[in-house]
Design a protein around this nucleic acid. Structure first.
Lengths: 196, 196
DNA sequence: ATTTATTATGAATAATGATTCATTTTTTGT
DNA sequence: ACAAAAAATGAATCATTATTCATAATAAAT
């Protein structure tokens, strides 16, 4: 078995256990059992419990960034790009519900050290949105007075909160696609009726 | 000293300590010291550590709901109402930064029991938004195809995520009011340029 | 002033679980 | 097939802390 295999097996087990119990209630022995390794083995691949969390975050957000950048590569219309981003973000939930739950938890931990450590990857992810907005302003698609730095947060926050609802509720009212489109639609066109 | 005084003293101390260290890293003795009572005294007012968190959430969200409903009472324009909600939400941060941090953490805890227990109060808070949207659709101000159930989450998520940035960063780029207006503006009018 | 009831204290308990490391198992090289 | 190196094991350690409860302080009642 290659080294990376066991590393990954532990990471995946940790995602499951963290999602189920939360970071602090998760025991190392739980993760070990889930990964089918001995407790001590975990310490051959990670320095400590925090390290599992951190490395999990880095790795998984990294993958997500790669994937969404790939999807956006051949699109030039900023409106469409925003929709692609939204749909991809929401569909993470379908494929990796547990991961999403863990990332949401982590992002709100109050441990300053941990928070700052992971902020860089997270910022890279939401900066994709501000880049799109900025681009859309240059091409004249988007209003100039909109602040990309606010939009990226607001857009992410909106999607993330919908994810949270989804992860929570047994039988969601809306489909993921529908939700992504609704949110994109609101951000693009607003809610107010216009007489054109 | 009235009973409620000590109860409140402990609650307020808990907010500070939870914000600083997070729920799991906060020790009962930390809270006791902060509240200037003995460790054992806490157990005369709360059943256990979780109970402090739960009762804190209930009480404080309750107050927030009361306040914002009061502010909305004399306003009938749904556009203005949304802005009032946003500004009030963001300004909580100015007055009670620590509380906001704790509520954000709590809301994402993965302990199912805790989560469900507190969901009712939270839902009451965001339902204020869906009520506004619904009302705005009836008066013809808002587009019919917008789903109030999605908007309430998206709007809250957007505001909440901006709060998080604010709580995190030492010297924020934007003022709270400005941020609240930006977000309300985007939700109302969108980002796309119109040729009217 | 004295008794009774209420409230507060904080040291002791007892459970928990992250981490270590001596030992065992597996892999690699010859 | 054997020795050396690498990887894995899991029981024991040891620090940590929520909670309890015998005792003390304070307040209320008579």
């Amino acid at each position: 078995m290659r080294v990376s295999d066991k590393h990954q097996k532990i990471t995946q087990a940790a995602v499951k256990v963290f999602a189920r119990k939360g970071f602090f209630n998760a025991r190392i022995s739980d993760i070990a059992k889930e990964a089918k390794v001995a407790d001590g083995t975990i310490y051959l691949y990670f320095n400590n419990k925090y390290d599992i969390l951190i490395s999990l975050f880095e790795d998984e957000i990294g993958k997500i960034i790669l994937k969404v950048k790939l999807l956006l590569e051949n699109e030039t219309d900023p409106l469409k790009m925003l929709e692609i981003y939204a749909i991809h973000h929401m569909s993470l939930l379908q494929d990796q519900k547990e991961l999403v739950e863990v990332l949401q938890m982590e992002l709100r931990q109050s441990n300053k050290f941990i928070k700052e450590y992971r902020n860089t990857k997270f910022i890279e992810y939401i900066d994709i949105v501000s880049d799109i907005v900025h681009k859309g302003q240059q091409t004249g698609h988007f209003r100039q007075e909109v602040m990309p730095g606010v939009v990226k947060r607001a857009f992410f926050g909106a999607l993330d909160e919908m994810s949270r609802l989804w992860a929570l509720s047994a039988k969601p009212k809306y489909t993921l696609e529908e939700t992504a489109r609704q949110i994109t639609g609101i951000f693009l066109y607003g809610m107010v009726v216009r007489n054109s």
